[in-house]
Amino acid sequence: MPSKKTAAPLLDARQAAFLGGPLSIGLASHGADGRPSLSRAYGCRVSADRREVVIYVSRRRAAELLRDVAAGAPVAAVFSRPATHETLQLKAARARVRAVAAADAAAMAASGAAFAAELTALGYPEAFLSAMLAPLRDEAMAVAFCPEGAFEQTPGPAAGRRLEPGA
């Protein structure tokens, strides 16, 4: 296996840009009993070298998921753009739970604003948007991982296709 430093990152520039856009995000893991855990996430950030993805969840809403991730279970995250249905899934054997830093807060705010603008354009009312984004306040946690698998999930015949680095 090539070293992380020399191999191309799994995510290309276009995918990294997509992850910074207006997205509906879901993050899943599983418990010791093999049953899935799941939470909506409120934004994400891709590191400059495109090797790490950080996703923001609500501590209160994602309690079970955070416990599973902290226990070392693998993660899967789905990112879907409401207006186009363009969808990407990333997977990793492990992830790290940490508090949010200042840079995270800025990324969360940008993701939230983009998502809200997208839903507004699709006709969702203001009250619905604020309820969708409210869980971010004061209780966000960051889940960071290095994606090991990326899958095309836009509805259609290519859905499920594994994406290769540099392909």
Binding site: R35, P74, A76, K91
Partner: peptide
């Protein structure tokens, strides 16, 4: 509003997808 589904493979790797 699309729903989200999480499942688990026999090897423990989760999968998460949107549902229309």
């Amino acid at each position: 509003i699309p729903a989200t589904i999480a499942t688990c493979a026999p090897d423990g790797m989760p999968n998460v997808a949107k549902l229309s």
